[in-house]
């Protein structure tokens, strides 16, 4: 058996990223899009940590990952607030139909 190396992490990360992208691109529900974005962010975090572990970059990767988690939390909070407000206004959160600014 091969030990778990960098490539495994990267593959997981890539799968997560793809899932995230898929979610962002296909979902109509704003919440689901947000969740996709979270996945993308987390895949990036995995990469940071993996490179930090396997490359000799010091702890920079872990630190950045921590920042990203914090940022993701903040972002999620704001985004959910926006979504709530959208819901208040439109009574749904289907992003395709929210095009008031467009017209």
């Amino acid at each position: 058996m091969e030990t778990i190396g960098l490539n495994h992490f990267l593959v997981v990360s890539a799968i997560l990223f793809s899932l995230g992208i898929y979610s962002v691109v296909t979902r109509k529900n704003a919440i689901m899009v947000l969740m996709g974005i979270e996945l993308i962010l987390n895949s990036a975090n995995i990469n940071f940590v993996a490179f930090s572990k396997y490359g000799n970059y010091g702890l920079g990767g872990q630190v950045t990952a921590l920042f990203v988690i914090i940022l993701a939390a903040a972002e999620a909070a704001i985004a959910l607030a926006i979504v709530l407000n959208l819901y208040k206004t439109f009574t749904h959160i289907n992003i395709d139909e929210i095009d008031e600014l467009n017209s």
Binding site: V24, V25, I95
Partner: peptide
């Protein structure tokens, strides 16, 4: 199209 998701696909 005005749909951000389409744009995103294109970007990717």
């Amino acid at each position: 199209s005005g749909r951000i998701q389409t744009y995103l696909v294109l970007v990717i």
